[in-house]
Structure formats: structure tokens, C-alpha cells
Design a protein around this nucleic acid. Structure first.
Lengths: 222, 222, 222, 222
DNA sequence: GATGAATGAGACTTCATTCAT
DNA sequence: AATGAATGAAGTCTCATTCAT
């Protein structure tokens, strides 16, 4: 009466994650459906039972990836209470990603950009999608800033710019990660992340004490 | 001597620039040799007289592009003398690029990243190339910083980090441009560039006056 | 006895009719087993419980269709007694089919031809099948002619050609229907059918009266 | 300076004729581009240098075929002067086609119908194309009829129906050819064509002499 | 030197059919 | 009996590259 019933959603997720691996290594254009099917351990045509097209698989893979990052960041945040510390968590996470043993995954950053920006890209005219996808992370950071203001750690006057500042953090950290990915040995990711973030925090925090002169690279001095 | 005999190098340049146009619109993978040949106004197989392969054409196109930007920046720098002003020129140039009527060209940023970072990419393991390519810009910025130190505008202790700071500027501005390209209406490029740069300058400049408390967004306040 | 136990034959018929619908709209090649299963309201693999293959389903569908037409024509014939009138019934039926609001069904004509005549066709080398299928209709028409002879309406000398004439009617009406299907606005099916049939009848009927000169398009003149 | 230049039109024609062969044997759906390329003696992708798609190749093939038939008919017509004889040429040509050593070619009739009538067909909504394609033949026949009227062979009152009658001839002969193709041994194409045409001519010609009673199958009696 | 012609390799996608429940 | 899952084979089409003029 009832044949083998499979949780379609679960298998989609499973395929999406295998695809994530392939896309991150080969890029969208160079990754073939055959490679993805092999990575997922299914037949080539089985992919089309779960997704409409290659583009569909890509979008699902990216969604899965954004989800992973969001969950990771939320988990790290929970353990801290100090707003400044929380912000440094972003650095640490980024540093983790940038130095992870498998740097392949973060190449996805570029694939997303590529596919959004290029006219023939899979994500072209889907700006909403990426916007929505990164919304979680942006919201987390915005909340940290607002919370910092309410606890007197950050200056009150930046309240109206909280979201913009969150955007700035994401964008600049993006840029630093990407440049790091280019493989230049002389690019010291840790230093660069700290430098950016120290400057930022120095500007938005309430001065601890009049006349106190913080080293501009606090992290390093410590 | 005869004007009909054109230099091979000159024609390569000419093709490279036509290719730049195509690559910037279609991306590397989607751009076809036929399109490039048509854009260059030559036959399809003529491309192979001047370049070994599609990859070759791409590299030449990127080289041409980096050259253009470097020349543009150098030209802008020449007109200013104040180090801080000079740094702001970088912002303006970036803003120009990011807001240009034809955003196609800056999509090349992404193509370069893509092709470097992805395993099967045309520029994979050619980190040296991009490094070399951006060296000009990095050197210009480094010089500005060092010159600023020698004229007492920037803190002396940042001398040893001058190149790293230049790197930071390039990377973060990259990130801001890319995020802007994603087409999010709420991303205010001008504000973001100013915010980043104001924070940076505030940290590296010699305080104008003890106790002076600069607004964190100096540019906006002005 | 239990109403839940349905006859295998009955369900085959039910599926065949659903398939007829799909085949008539899409043609054999473009119709997919999935579409058929959905139209029949059963699972895809259930089709294989009742039929060996797609070809099998097609043959069953065609059989069902021929049956429908045969029954329709027999029903119409029963109401008339005059042989000539009976022949005109064929025209009307054909006209009905050709002008029906849903022309999809008569596309089946073509599918049958296609599949019989083409080397790789499902009905290739199955001439017997179509022959058998259209035998009913041919026999009905042959009987009408023979009956007309025996009642003195048709010429006696055509007796030995009765079946051939029936064939001629079927073939020519076929041709007229098909050309009508091509969608040419200037093709007036009613006129064409009448023209053909009037000529035919004029030639095989016993002249009503010596010297009587019938208009060549009797139907129109009326 | 100038590479190998080929007459594109000529090669298109050459490919179209090879394709005609394949399509006539396999039908549109079953014929593969590989088969066509092999029949044409070129590489698979070379086809795409001369045609945009499989559909394009099909249309070109059909055009070539209609052209062949038109030329053949015109050639045959030229040799005769008597209008009735000219009409019989149509029969002969049709008989030739229907009995030709390679019956494959006339299966194309069905392919054209199929592709026009089926929703997903290549010629769907291209009624104009087939109309235009068969226009030559229709015009030739119409002219024969009109000429017959002006020389007193055909009745004057059919003048306004000349084109319709031409249509009738084409459609009915179509139908007879198709039924013949179905491979039924008992279908006597020659007899059927003659029967149809004799009836037709008998109705439209000016009676030779009052009281003359023509056998209804004049051709056979002769 | 310049170029149109030609193509093989490979991409995405569809679908009839089998399998296991 | 009934069916969702799975897939191999095959199809159309693209494109970087080579060849011959």
C-alpha cells in the first residue's frame, strides 16, 4: 500500500550539503551535476527528483551555508555578555572561517557575489535572496550594538546608525577574508581583523576614562 | 614605419580592452571567444594569433584593467599635497567606481577573486599575479602614509605597519564596494566609505589638539 | 462481490481513456508516463501493473478511441433508413469531429498514422491493428452501399466495388479532416465534405429521371 | 587573407536534404541530431553552424521537400496541353510518390501534420508556413481549372470555386496516399486515385454530348 | 597575418522503466 | 495491489580550439 516514503526535505538538505562542497571547490560554472551527484552518492538524475535545476541546487546549497554560519555565530554569542567581547566573537568566527583547515567553504562568498553581480548569474536579480540570507547575521550584530548602548558601553549617539555599522562590519570583514583568500602570505588576517575592529570599537565606545589613550592595536598589545 | 604594420603588442592591448568589456559584463565562464572576437572586431581565430588561450586573454584583460585604475589613482594623487586629503582621494575613486553609470566594470573585481580562489580557476596558484597587479596601488598608499608620518600628520609609531594599513584600506574598501554591488538599496556606499575612513584616520593621525574629541563621522558633520 | 475489487479489465479501460486524453493533446512522443499516471489518478508505476509499456498504453488508448467512434456512427446510422441519408451521416459525424470545440481528440488520427508509418513507430508493422480497428467503420459503410443497391438506390454494377468505395470515403474524408486541422482559415470543411460526397453519390446513384441534370453541389443549391 | 569561403546556402541545402532522409525514416522526435549529422557527413556540432536548432533543420528539410514536389509537378504539367490530361498528371505524380521505391519520403506528409497539429509540435502555430509551402501546388491546380474553363472544357459556373476544388483535390489525394501508406495490401492506390478523380472530372467537365453516359471509372475501362 | 569552417568533448536535462516496500 | 524512489541511457546544444586557405 505504502511504498518507501522518504523525507524529501531531509534528502534535499543532504544533497544541498554535498553540493556545497562541490560548489565551494569548483565554483558554480565548473561544478557539474555529475560531480554533485557523485558527492551526494546518488544517481545523476536523482538530483532532479529533488531540485528543478542546477540553479536550484545552488540556491539550496547557499541557504544551507548561510544557516550554518548564522547558527555558529549565535552559539558563540550566547556564551558572552560583554558587548565588546561579543563583537570580538565576530572576528574570531571570521578568523576561524578564514583559517579553517578546509578553506574551500568560504570560497562560496565569492560564488555568491559572482552569481549575483554577473548578468547571466544564477542569483542575478535575486538581491532579495542574499539580503534575506544575511539578514540574520546583520540583526545579531545590530542587537549587540543596541544592547551595548543601553548598558552604557557604546555611545548613545550611534543608535540611529546601528544597522549601518553592522553593515560596515560585515562588509569590511568580507573584504578582509577575501583578500586573505587570495593566498598572499604577507597578508596577516589576524592582524588585519584586529586592526579594523579596534579602530571601530575605539570610535564607538564610551571612553573609559578621560585622557586614557588606548593603543590602536589593543589586541596585539595584550 | 608604414602605419599599416601594427605592433603586435599594440593589437594585444586593443584586444585585451575589448575583452575587458565582455568579461565585465558576462563573467569569465559565460563570455565566449566569439563574443570577444566580435567586440574586438577581429576573426575568432585571430585571437589565437595573439593569445594562447582564453585564460591568456583574461589575464591580459585584467592587467589592462589594473593599469587603468593605477593610472587614474596616481593622477588624482598628484593634485593633492595633504596626506589626509590624499587618502580621501582613494575613497572618492572607489565611490566613483562603485557608482559609475556602468557598474559592469567593477564586476571584474569578483571575476578576479573567483578565478583565483576556485580550484579550477584560471588564476589559481597565480596569487603572485594579483599581488603584483595590486602592488602599485598598495605602494602608492604606503607612500602616502609614510609621507604623512614624515610631515607630522600621522603618528610615528605606525611606520612599521604602513604597508599593512595600506592593505587594510584596500581590503575593506573592496568589501564595501562588493557589498554595494549586491544592489541593496539600503546600503549607502558614501556613508560606509566615510565611516570606515574616518575611523581609520582618527586612529592614525596625530591628535590636532589635546582633548579634542572628533565626531566619529567627521565627514558628515562638516 | 465487494465493490472495492475492481476488474482488471475495467481499470485498464479507465487508464486507457485517461491516456487518450493526454496522447491527443501532446502526441505520443511528448506525452510522458508521469502525465498519463496523473491524468489517470494513479501512481506512475501502477501503469506497469496494467500495461507492459508505454507502447501498450498507446495501443489500448487508440483501441478505446476507435470503439467510441464506431459506436457513435452505428448509433447515428440506426435512426435513418434511406441509404443516401445514411451516407450523409458519415459526413456529419466527420464534420462534428472536425469542428468540435476540442480539436485535440482528432489529432489522434495523425498520431496513429505517424506511429504506423515511421520506422521506429509504436505501430510499425502493425498494419493489421489499424486495419482491424477501422474494419467496423468500413463494414458499416459497405453495408450501406450494398443495401442501397438492393433497394434500387445505387447502381447495381458497383456491387463488386462496394468495399473499395467505402475505403475511398474513409480515406478522402480523412484527408479533408486533416487539412482542416492544419488551421487554414480559408479551408471550408463543410463545403469540402459536401463537394466530395455529392460528386460521389451523383456517380453511384441510379439517375432519378432521364435528362435530370443535378447541380454539382447539390447540398449548397438546396 | 581570405580563408576558405563556403556557400552557406548551398551547404544548408545539402544538410537539409540529408535531414529529409532521416526525418522521413524516423520521424521528427525519433530522429537525432547525431543521425542527421552522420547522414550529412559532417560533425554533430557543424549542424549548428548552419541551423539554430533541430526545429530549424526540420523546417528547412520540409521546405526542400515541398520544393522538389512543386518542381516535379510543374515539369510534368508543361508537357501536356489538355486540361483534363493535366489533372491526371496529379494522379500520376501522387501514384509515383506513393509507390516510389523509397516510400520513406512521403512519410513526411505525416510528420508535417503531426508537428503542426500537436501542441508541442515544431510547426504548431506556423500554419502560415505550411500554407505558404503548399501554395505553389494549389496555384498550379487552380490555374489548370481556370484554363480548362476558358477553353470550354470545364463548366463555367465552377469558376468561383476553382481554388476550393484545387484544395479538395490536394486534401483527398493526401488522404488516399496516407491510407495507402498504412500498408494495407488490399488498398489499391491506383484504383482509388482514379475513382476519386474520375468522379470529380465527370462533375466539372462540360458533357461531351447529350445522352453520352461515361463509365464511372473511365480510366479502368480504357 | 588573418580568418571562416569544422568539431569533439562535455554540459544540463528528460524519461521509461525497475525496485523495494 | 499499489506506489514513491531511483537511475541509465540518450537527447539537444555550447564552445574552446585546430585546420586549411
Amino acid at each position: 500500500m505504502s511504498p518507501l516514503i522518504i523525507d524529501k526535505t531531509e534528502k534535499q538538505q543532504q544533497i544541498a550539503e554535498a553540493a556545497l562542497d562541490v560548489f565551494s571547490k569548483q565554483g558554480y560554472a565548473a561544478a557539474s551535476m555529475r560531480q554533485i551527484s557523485e558527492a551526494a552518492g546518488v544517481g545523476k538524475s536523482t538530483l532532479y527528483e529533488y531540485f528543478e535545476s542546477k540553479a536550484d541546487v545552488f540556491i539550496a546549497a547557499i541557504r544551507a551555508w548561510i544557516g550554518q554560519i548564522g547558527r555558529r555565530m549565535a552559539a558563540l554569542m550566547e556564551k558572552r555578555t560583554d558587548p565588546i567581547e561579543k563583537i570580538y566573537v565576530a572576528v574570531e568566527l571570521a578568523n576561524d572561517i578564514g583559517c579553517a583547515r578546509d578553506p574551500a567553504m568560504n570560497r562560496l562568498y565569492i560564488e555568491v557575489y559572482e552569481q549575483m553581480v554577473v548578468e547571466t548569474g544564477v542569483l542575478h536579480h535575486r538581491g532579495d535572496l542574499v539580503h534575506e540570507m544575511s539578514a540574520d547575521i546583520r540583526r545579531i550584530l545590530t542587537d549587540v550594538i543596541l544592547h551595548g548602548i543601553s548598558t552604557g558601553v557604546f555611545k548613545a549617539e550611534i543608535a540611529r546608525d546601528a544597522e549601518r555599522i553592522a553593515f560596515n562590519m560585515i562588509a569590511c570583514i568580507d573584504g578582509l577574508l577575501l583578500n586573505n583568500l587570495l593566498g598572499n602570505r604577507r597578508f596577516d588576517l589576524k592582524w588585519q581583523l584586529d586592526f579594523y575592529l579596534n579602530n571601530l570599537i575605539e570610535m564607538i565606545r564610551v571612553p573609559i576614562e578621560a585622557g586614557a589613550q588606548a593603543g590602536f592595536i589593543k589586541g596585539e598589545e595584550a
